[in-house]
């Protein structure tokens, strides 16, 4: 059975979606989780590098995937995620982690991460509560 899920390390986003996997880790950990899922048949529905910041400036990462158990590896997704992992690995020692940020800045990053995903989440029916995110509440 095919199912869309979000892989994210953004707790604020995770709280308002209907199907997802919360990664307790860095943006790179999210990408590695997605890569592993792709090897098991999933395909990516959103670009793994959305936003406009470099890896060392991106504390949150969210990727929408479609689980297709038994499917052959989707090569386009695999190529794209490998490129993204490679890029993030080149910044491995300089990754920006949520715990390194002040509360207000963390909220801003979490909010923009959600905004980048909003359209896609809506389209694939994953917003569980009208897509209304109030990061200052959701992060607490």
């Amino acid at each position: 059975m095919q199912k869309c899920v979000v892989v994210t390390n953004n707790p604020a986003l995770y709280r308002i979606i209907s199907a997802g996997r919360l990664i307790d880790g860095s943006s790179l950990d999210v990408l590695i989780d997605v890569r592993d899922a792709i090897h098991l048949g999933s395909r990516m529905l959103t670009h793994p590098l959305c936003g406009n910041l470099r890896p060392c400036q991106q504390p949150f990462r969210s990727v929408l995937i479609q689980n297709n158990p038994e499917a052959l590896v989707h090569l386009e997704s695999l190529s794209m995620i490998e490129e993204a992992v490679l890029l993030y690995r080149s910044y491995q020692n300089r990754l920006l982690l949520p715990c390194m940020l002040s509360e207000t800045l963390c909220e801003d990053y979490a909010f923009v991460d959600f905004e980048l995903m909003r359209e896609s989440l809506d389209r694939y029916g994953l917003l569980s509560r009208n897509g209304a995110l109030s990061p200052d509440l959701a992060l607490r």
Binding site: E115, L116, E119
Partner: peptide
């Protein structure tokens, strides 16, 4: 044109280009 979401959007004749 940049069209990824809030603060990542552009408008053509007032229409959200995404």
């Amino acid at each position: 044109l940049q069209t990824q979401g809030l603060l990542h959007d552009t408008y053509l004749y007032g229409v959200d280009v995404k």
